[in-house]
Amino acid sequence: MLERLRNAGVSAWAVSRPSLLAITISLTISFVIVVAVSEQPVVAFRTFLGGAFENVYSFGSMLSIATILILSGLAATVGFRAGAFNAGGEGQIYVGALMAVVVAQAAPLPPPLAITAALMAGMVAGAIWILVPALMRVYLGIAEIVTTLMASYIAPLLTIYLLMNGGLRNPNAGVPETVRLVPELRLPRILSPSSANWGLFIALALVVAYWIVLERTRLGMRMKLVGQQPSFAETMGIDNKRVLLVSFFASGALAGLAGAIVSVGMDHRFIQSFSPGYGFLGITVALIGRLSPLGVILAALLYGALVVGAGKMQTASDVPFALLFVLQGVLVFLMTGNLAAVGRRLFGGR
């Protein structure tokens, strides 16, 4: 039931109101937590909210994180649209990231093509990583939620194995990581020296592409119909299974691309345990953005800012980074629950 996400004929305010309400409530909750745990709550909370806007560098960091979140948020969105819950974005990001580095280094291609090949390889890896859960859901009816999660526990282990045993590890680095990509094989930076990069434009372009597919193609129309009301879609002769499979693969590929952009655009290498939970944050971003293309961008920017702010808060005050994850969980409840109904139940009224 995606009904609340459909916004045809409804004002922007009506669409965004529940999101804004949920964000306000959860920020209030996090403020209460900050007050409870901190000696200097105001400083801490101000850094949490505003840290990303203190200077160009942190603003750039915010953009680079938002880039990844747009893609992983889009990955979750594409799945949800057709009724598939890809909870394993995290794993797809890991395999995508490693695959991109390997292909970028190994491909005997001129740099721009090698970068393209690396990004494509990340997408393919992500799609492969969701293959088994997708087939099990569509043809055997096994809930994808557990299988995608399991696959996502396997991915970091597999990538670290390949890193250590595949001759990929940089012997001079302390942390297990690959050697850095040569400068020509990196996505160009914007707002240097921050890690913001051209990946942002790729992500934005894909959001536009997603919007076009959703609103202007037959596939998008079918995706929406299958996700909203499978019985209607079936009656109209739409092949529910095929549409669902396509959404699964698109979702996996987008998460894989998010990983590839971490490698090729942000870190310029694959580092063990590089992700602060980009895959799970993608689910939150998709829900805050109410599965709308513009919503996903805004939610990713918001969460990018909070990630940067949380990092700064951790150094500048006594409140740890983990506040971000608490907030993330709270937001999931508030975004998917019916706040209006709770209000009515608790306080009476209409």
Binding site: F280, F325, V326, G329, V332, F333, T336, G337
Partner: peptide, 22 residues
């Protein structure tokens, strides 16, 4: 709150992981 039980469960896990870290 009438959340979907699966999604609420995922949200719950995220929240707990944050709270314990915190």
């Amino acid at each position: 709150l009438t959340c979907d039980i699966i999604i609420a469960g995922i949200g719950f896990n995220m929240m707990v992981s944050g709270v314990t870290l915190l």
